[in-house]
Design a binder for these strands. Structure first.
Ligand code: SF4
Ligand code: SF4
Lengths: 135, 135
DNA sequence: ATAAAATACGATTAAAATAATCGCATATAT
DNA sequence: ATATATGCGATTATTTTAATCGTATTTTAT
């Protein structure tokens, strides 16, 4: 499938929202309600974004999230890699399981598949959170 | 996920193999063994390719498959559309269920998503079965 | 005729990936 | 203290994808 997973898409939407309100901390509750994303799911996604140093949070009353990096420095591909590390890699390689396709080496499709990967990647690398907000 | 489904990939491999042996009918058994694709799965895939007028078959002893269209006229995207009709479409639209995303209309990502779709599609439309065999 | 070698195809099952929730812990402002 | 937040591992549910089953039909060769 050549589409974003929901996690990836929800992450992008959340980051857009946080970026738009960068003067304050934004709570999960607010993001969840504004964007109609399940609360716990939103929460889990943001926590993963902390681990990747894209956002940071403060707990407690008036807590919430804010960006660590500037919106222009967060690429769509960064988010894809966090939530779906295989997605930018062809089937020949399985990053998650550390396996390679048994046809590798005698496969007449592999070169094409990597060419396509490189060209598609080039397209995607051109989009940041900031750029997506200006579109 | 930005990768081919197995059905799509197996279909491409099978078509390459049939194209390479275009002087005769090729049996599912042979394709299945040569490419290490489960027999019944290969069979099912080829039957779907008949419905899309990409191959034709003859039953019985010495039966098998051959191409209807020339390898240069079969695009990778044609195959993707057969086995995964949503794959070239962003999440905003669900072709299979005929639904649209509830955020549509007030979504700050949609334009970007369609731009990316168009650019990626342009890349993919450049690849045919024939081209993939020459790579 | 009939046996063997093939495809045809709907139905079903299995496996994997993705989405979502639960429950409890911890931090903080008032 | 209390209410309002995040933190996080574990679990469950759902959906998608992969694969198989069983039976019918067609065709060739003997
Ligand atoms: S392109 Fe070839 S090697 Fe790569 S996954 Fe597909 S079959 Fe395997
Ligand atoms: S881009 Fe916006 S409208 Fe399209 S699927 Fe994502 S959230 Fe929905």
């Amino acid at each position: 499938m050549f589409r974003f997973t929901k996690q990836t898409e929800y992450a992008i939407l959340s980051l857009q929202y946080i970026a738009k309100n960068s003067n304050r901390l934004v709570s999960v509750r607010e993001i969840s309600e504004e964007l109609e994303i399940p609360f716990q799911f939103t929460s889990k996604i943001l926590q993963q974004l902390i681990k990747s140093d894209i956002v940071e949070s403060r707990q407690g009353v008036k807590g919430g999230y804010k960006l660590v990096k500037e919106a222009k420095d967060i690429l769509i591909t960064d988010i894809m890699e966090i939530f779906d590390p295989n997605s930018l890699q062809p089937n020949c390689i399985d990053i998650i399981n550390g396996t390679i396709c048994k046809r590798s080496g005698r496969c007449n499709l592999q070169k094409t598949v990597f060419k396509i990967k490189n060209e598609v990647e080039k397209v995607l690398k051109d989009y940041s959170i900031e750029k997506s907000m200006k579109d």
